[in-house]
Structures are given as C-alpha cells and as structure tokens.
C-alpha cells in the first residue's frame, strides 16, 4: 500500500507567538494547534474537534480570530499569533477574564480559553457590542455545559467595564517587558 500523504519531512519555521519569535522544526502538514500544544507547551488552546466545529482552539492571527486546528503552522510565518496565554499578564487578568469569573461564564472550563479569546477579539473589533452581536460573533464557540447565558453576561459586562480598565492588555504590542 503506497502512502504518499506523509509528505515531506520536518523543516524549520519561524513563528511569532505572543510577541516572541520562536523557531520550530516541524513537518509542513502540522496544524498550528498541534505546534502550539506539543512544541511550544501552550496547552491553553484545546483540541475539541480538529475540524473547525467547536472553537475550543480559538486564537488570534493578525488581529482576526482563527481556528488553530484548521490552520497550518507553515501558513503562519510572518504573522502575529496570540493565544490565551497572552491575554493575562502575570496576576493581571483581562477584563473579559475577570467578568467570566464574576459571572460564572463557564462550567467544565474546557471551551473557556477559546471563549475568552473569541470575546477579547470581538471587543477589539467592536468595543461595545449589542447582545445580539455577542451571540452572533461567538456562535462558533460551543459550550456543551451550556454556560451561554453567563458567557453573554460576562462579555457584555466586560465591554461596559473595558474602557475603564487597562485597554493595552489585549493589544499585540504588550507581549514583553511589563509583566516581569
């Protein structure tokens, strides 16, 4: 039985992840999700389905939300990748994270990193969304535990509070230096 799908062997790839330049030696067939989790030890993004159907792997690439499970790592060279690990800074949580805790916007928590990243990205594009806009923007993030009502509440609350708090925490430029 011939197996041509294995493809070429590992090659070096330069990735900018959470503001840091990282070089990984990987097969070109690797997804961004598998590289984040297995090569870079960033296990916050989860493998829920591997087919872009659940959103547990949500990351931000060049400012846009993306499913890391459907993104090839080689396609990310020269682009800025942000994961859940960059959303908080040391003890300093992002307003979205604080709101998730305050409003119990989770249950088992497995989808939560993806939900938080999707919410952060939404608020970067639309700092004061309506409830309908939150529901629409986050419809690609499945929560099987059904924490949706509290997630909506948390995102709207974070949006209300967001302007009063440090707006830079979610920006792409703060990756190093401040958190010590």
């Amino acid at each position: 039985m011939a197996i041509s799908f294995r493809g070429p062997g590992p090659i070096p790839i330069d990735l900018n992840v959470n503001g840091e330049e990282r070089t990984v030696f990987i097969e070109p067939r690797r997804t961004l999700l598998s590289v984040l989790r297995e090569e870079l030890g960033l296990t916050g993004a989860k493998h829920g389905c591997g087919r872009g159907q659940c959103g547990a792997c949500t990351v931000i690439i060049d400012g846009e939300t993306a499913y890391a499970c459907l993104t090839l790592a080689v396609d990310c060279e020269g682009r800025s990748i942000r994961t859940i690990e960059s959303v908080s800074h040391g003890e300093q949580l992002h307003p979205v994270q604080e709101a998730f805790i305050e409003h119990d916007g989770y249950q088992c928590g497995f989808c939560t990193p993806g939900q938080v990243v999707a919410a952060v990205s939404l608020l970067e594009h639309n700092p004061s969304p309506t409830e309908a806009e939150v529901r629409e923007a986050m419809a690609g993030n499945v929560c099987r535990c059904g924490a949706y009502p509290n997630i909506v509440t948390a995102v709207l609350d974070a949006a209300r509070q967001g302007t009063g708090r440090d707006p830079g925490v979610s920006g792409a430029t703060v990756a190093s230096g401040e958190e010590g």
Binding site: T43, I101, D104, T112
Partner: peptide, 21 residues
C-alpha cells in the same frame, strides 16, 4: 461565590487529561 479555581479556568492554565505531556 465565584469558583475558587476560576483563574486557572480563564487563563488556560487548568490542566486537563488532554494537556498531560
């Protein structure tokens, strides 16, 4: 009462079986 392990859940630091390496 907000969950005592809330920070681990919202920061991606909570370790699930999938995350064991």
């Amino acid at each position: 009462t907000p969950r005592v392990d809330g920070i681990a859940r919202v920061t991606g630091k909570a370790v699930y079986t999938h995350d064991i390496q």
